[in-house]
Computed example of a mutant assay.
Amino acid sequence: MFLGRIRRTPSAPVELVALRDGGLVSLADLGTDDPVALLDSHGLSRLSEEVASRRPVLDEAAVVFEPPVATCTKICCLALNYVAHAEESGMEVPPEPVLFFKPPSALTGHNRPVVAPARTSHLEHEVELAVVIGKVTRDLPAERWREAVAGYTVVNDMTARDLQLVNIGRNVPWDQSKGFDTFAPAGPYLATVDEVPDPQALELTLEVDGEVRQRANTKQMVFGIPRLIADLSDGMTLMPGDLIATGTIAGIAPLKDGDTMRATVEGVGTLVNTVKFRSA
């Protein structure tokens, strides 16, 4: 099941939908626009039956997409979690997971523009599989990792590379280079766990105006999802709707104004966003 959050018009309220037979089934009457909360209250089987009993009433191309999570307290991002990406960055593969955060205010939806602020002239794409946390999670052993997961989505970890490299050179935090508004496009949907039986065997690709720039497989992660959930929840509470962006693959490259990015995770979805550079 693929659950999304949309508006029928830019000023309309957000409503929950499910993708079915090429169209969107409205779930607005179920009382929430939060797919994670609805999965928790209804359960996957009951909600799947509810979706199957309804007819699609909306066209994907005619709606405005919001991020697929209604409540997100933090976006946990993993750096250098693919060997080839570490090598292209001139960095060593870390012995432990390397975490940084994006603020929830960086989230934006499918088909929304990514707007680079005037202070940067070098923007880069980073396609990633994101885990959507489904329950309050703390100190969860790696072997029980699935208990924490509501589903998966696609994230494009946008980075103002010029600003990041300056701060790396100064040996100061570089979170701001990744935390601007619209720098965490996500979606289009939350793919529930039944749609992704093995998240460690998914092809990732990113295209810019039809040119493939990134391609690899999640099986190439240095630290897999069980380890990441165990590590992140060790002393830190993961909340429903939080995202874990599991790291990008090799092929990062600069973008220019007007470029259209297509970030795809096999079995999860294709996230499309166009780049806009803001003038000073």
Rank of each mutant, 00 (worst) to 15 (best):
87 E>P: 04
151 G>F: 03
272 V>T: 15
150 A>D: 03
49 E>G: 13
33 D>H: 07
1 M>C: 00
226 P>C: 13
35 P>W: 03
33 D>A: 11
136 V>Q: 01
142 A>K: 15
7 R>I: 12
14 V>F: 09
146 R>T: 14
172 V>L: 05
104 P>G: 05
253 A>V: 08
166 V>G: 05
69 V>Q: 01
9 T>D: 15
245 A>P: 02
247 G>F: 08
37 A>V: 01
126 E>M: 08
78 L>I: 12
254 P>G: 15
132 V>Y: 02
263 A>F: 14
279 S>I: 08
149 V>R: 07
109 G>N: 08
178 K>S: 11
156 N>R: 15
220 Q>L: 08
279 S>T: 13
168 I>E: 13
62 A>K: 14
220 Q>G: 00
158 M>E: 14
84 A>S: 06
44 L>E: 13
84 A>F: 01
235 G>E: 05
248 T>P: 10
100 F>H: 05
101 F>I: 02
117 P>K: 02
184 A>G: 12
262 R>D: 12
199 P>L: 00
259 D>A: 12
26 S>G: 02
169 G>M: 12
91 M>F: 07
37 A>G: 00
73 T>V: 00
224 G>H: 13
272 V>C: 09
206 L>P: 14
22 G>D: 02
21 D>R: 06
188 P>L: 08
214 Q>P: 15
25 V>Q: 00
150 A>I: 05
81 N>P: 10
187 G>I: 04
214 Q>N: 09
95 P>D: 13
176 Q>R: 04
20 R>W: 01
128 E>T: 03
118 A>K: 09
103 P>I: 08
148 A>V: 06
104 P>F: 00
194 D>H: 04
10 P>F: 08
34 D>S: 02
100 F>Q: 07
24 L>R: 02
160 A>S: 14
229 I>G: 05
210 G>H: 11
44 L>R: 13
238 L>D: 01
216 A>Q: 09
190 L>V: 01
179 G>L: 04
151 G>S: 01
118 A>L: 08
22 G>M: 04
205 T>M: 09
119 R>G: 05
99 L>T: 06
158 M>I: 11
117 P>V: 06
